[in-house]
Design a protein around this nucleic acid. Sequence first.
DNA 1: TTTATATATCGAGAATTATAGATATATTTA
DNA 2: TAAATATATCTATAATTCTCGATATATAAA
Lengths: 100, 100
Amino acid sequence: MNLKIATEIGKCLSNQIRFQILEWLKEPEKHFPPHETLKHFNDGVCVTYIQEKTKLSQSTISTYLTNMEKCGLLISTRHGKWSYLKRNEETIKQFTDFLT
Amino acid sequence: MNLKIATEIGKCLSNQIRFQILEWLKEPEKHFPPHETLKHFNDGVCVTYIQEKTKLSQSTISTYLTNMEKCGLLISTRHGKWSYLKRNEETIKQFTDFLT
DNA sequence: TTTATATATCGAGAATTATAGATATATTTA
DNA sequence: TAAATATATCTATAATTCTCGATATATAAA
């Protein structure tokens, strides 16, 4: 972790909805309906479900999630036409270690 | 800690200079000259020293530090005409706990 | 191979933040 | 009390971010 990446993470955390997504992803089964094709949350939650819950436009949520992945807060996995997002606990740990 | 305050903290951490200040304040004696009137860093570092090091205008640095104090990242103590700033480790801990 | 669905990217206007100079306030010193 | 110093606040412009609709791409289904 360095200052530049940490600040990029800070930018992601500077918006209530983005921060909220990170919180929801702590417990996907509690905050999202079960996936129909993928019978688990091992790779996180698909973009559509996150979009529905936030009520933002598809393009906005896609940009948010892409940026959160770029700075390492999220891990993205594609299964067929769906992208699944989960927290990247390793980076989050590095970030909090850097801060403290 | 709640989502609103956490996001305010995120805003402070979304700027490289503000984040840097927080890092410097981990070890004041390493990054700042000794105070002339106050013979310790127990209450942190005075605004002037922080301003000099960042090379931002006085008004900008004052605004930064005020906001960082408002969201709980910093603790401000006045001694005479100087304000001293130090990290608020308690809030920082609450923030990282909230995130993880 | 056409159509449908999921996600990504582009371009633009609205909203917010960055930053500084001017000015105000608080405190100390002469 | 007047001048000097440290910090805070006000106001305004520049820069960045927000957010969306339009469009592109990728994959699956018909």
